[in-house]
């Protein structure tokens, strides 16, 4: 009954859709026949606070939360949140970052500058750091609402889950008139080169 797990941590700012991303990832893993657990804390985080949502899939999954140093993949919807979460990443893990800056309102009062050189800060020689502005690219693909699907496309290329299962889940998720656009965006995410 030994546990073998792939650990995916999705982080972002309340309202960005991080929870939905883990929701879909965990449905795909279930469809692919894995044991799955997904964990997070709700509460006040929806009021513009920090969101961290965990998916663990594999065999005989025990804990629903990813420990520090245990994440195989981190998907960060916002650049500062990538920094905040990085202690959870395995030394040779992969981190995908939407290089979109959401300055916390409190930064003004604490006189803290929004950090720069995010990529340089995260690189350590072993990690894979995939960073791009998903917001701008999504707008280019037709709508800022496509950020989530675009990032999932990038993530899906890294995870060893069947493409067919992803498409099946997306087909259940999206209303008919939105589906085509989302499938195309998903493909665009998968096709991205870093």
């Amino acid at each position: 009954m030994k546990e073998t797990a792939t650990n995916v941590l999705v982080v972002g700012v309340g309202g960005q859709g991080a929870v939905m991303a883990t929701e879909l990832t965990s449905e795909v893993a279930l469809l692919a026949g894995y044991d799955v657990k997904k964990g997070e804390v709700h509460g006040m985080s929806q009021r513009g606070g920090v969101i961290a949502s965990h998916v663990r899939f594999g065999k005989n999954i025990t804990s629903p939360i990813i420990e520090k140093g245990e994440a195989d993949y981190i998907l960060a919807f916002e650049a500062v949140e990538a920094l905040r979460a990085v202690d959870c990443l395995k030394p040779d893990g992969t981190i995908i970052i939407n290089d979109q800056k959401i300055v916390p309102p409190i930064a003004h009062f604490l006189k803290i500058d929004y950090p720069d050189k995010i990529k340089e800060k995260l690189e350590n020689g072993k990690r894979k750091v995939l960073i791009f502005n998903a917001f701008e690219k999504a707008v280019g693909l037709g709508s800022e609402l496509l950020v989530n699907t675009l990032l999932l496309g990038v993530l899906s290329k890294q995870l060893k889950l069947p493409e067919k299962a992803w498409k099946e889940v997306l087909t259940i998720q999206f209303a008919k008139k939105m589906l085509d656009k989302n499938l195309k965006t998903f493909e665009a995410g998968r096709a991205m080169k870093f």
Binding site: R47, L110, P115
Partner: peptide
């Protein structure tokens, strides 16, 4: 043995706010 945490990087706090 448990996993070993990667080095943390400072990030500005992001407390919840009124919408």
């Amino acid at each position: 043995s448990g996993p070993v945490a990667s080095a943390a990087i400072d990030a500005p706090p992001r407390p919840p706010t009124m919408c």
